[in-house]
Nucleic acid binder design. Structure first.
Lengths: 187, 187
DNA sequence: GTCTATACCACGATAGAC
DNA sequence: GTCTATCGTGGTATAGAC
């Protein structure tokens, strides 16, 4: 059905936004329903539980990450590709609708909720690690690539929290630029 | 009253632990009461609201940070003091009772709850920034100290999330060691 | 001054109407 | 196949008993 999937999509999008801003436990299904212009109790027609809605949200994130990674893969060199990836991260955490730590909150939230959801969220992070690691291996000692990937991803994530505290775009641009410079000479 | 402050203290400690593990919204006052062996409804004798309990939790964190910083100040050189500080951070995020991102979750949670709580939590982060900045200024260009402090704190925080995903102490020790090395030659 | 019984509401979830 | 009225539980908060 046409409208059926539309509403389902609207619910996922609203949940994604609200989980990001208010967290999983802090978001009620009424909030999600209202934000999607779907009748309150009706949510259960599309999702059998709040948890299954969260699964759909993780899947939506997975799509985002894959698209964002695919865009980065257009770069000519591994260094350029990693920088494009980092700019994607910047766009989310600093130029997103709310200064926040993308994935970090989701990860912590869902991990506490259930093992299944926690592992699902970890997959997102692991995907970022393996993709960046693969790129690092192309221009540095492959034995170091895992290590460098962990540094890159965790630094980007840490800057998300810093963004939240500083609320200063200029400062944040400079911090991300430093990570870009490090990409050229990783150590 | 003796027992009065004791119970109050127990409540704060339980709330601190539970907020850390389950988040603010994910923790009910019943949970806190049960964990402190205090009758459920009785919580409101000690705190006028859940929010005021959160304020007390932030204050408890402030105490922790101050103690931890004071311990770090015993180091002979600024480099040594920053490393001691970082080891304190490591102890919390990796050797703590749950792999997590200390302060990060609190910050995101409370910021969403109310402006007042959000600012209170930001104070904790700002305190870490200003203390580390002061130390950096002692052995590097003072014009860079703020920048270096932001790098140090955000990197430590990012490793907290990485710890959550990897769950591998050996790996984490290595990542923190790399930050320690950077402290000697910050750039 | 300390604690308990309870109000009241919002939550996730369901049964069954259209 | 789609949606609505409603249930039971458990949440925060309070009035008032000891």
């Amino acid at each position: 059905m046409r409208s059926s999937t539309e509403k389902r999509e609207r619910l996922i999008l609203a949940a994604k936004r609200l989980f990001y801003r208010r967290g999983f436990a802090g978001t009620s299904l009424s909030d999600v329903a209202e934000d999607s212009s779907v009748p309150v109790g009706n949510v259960y027609y599309y999702f059998k539980s709040k948890e299954s809605l969260a699964e759909a949200v993780v899947a939506a994130y997975q799509n985002d990450i894959q698209e964002w990674t695919r865009a980065a893969e257009l770069g000519p060199t591994p260094q350029e590709r990693l920088k494009l990836w980092l700019r994607g991260y910047f766009a989310m955490s600093v130029d997103g609708e709310d200064w926040n730590c993308p994935f970090g909150r989701l990860l912590i939230d869902l991990r506490q909720q259930s093992d299944r959801l926690g592992e699902l969220a970890c997959t997102l992070y692991q995907f970022m690690l393996s993709w960046t690691s693969k790129e690092f291996a192309l221009y540095s000692d492959p034995a170091d690539s895992e290590r460098l990937a962990q540094n890159l991803v965790s630094r980007a994530q840490g800057l998300g929290i810093l963004a939240l505290v500083l609320q200063d775009r200029v400062e944040l641009v400079a911090r991300f630029q430093e990570v870009e410079n490090w990409i050229d000479q990783p150590s």
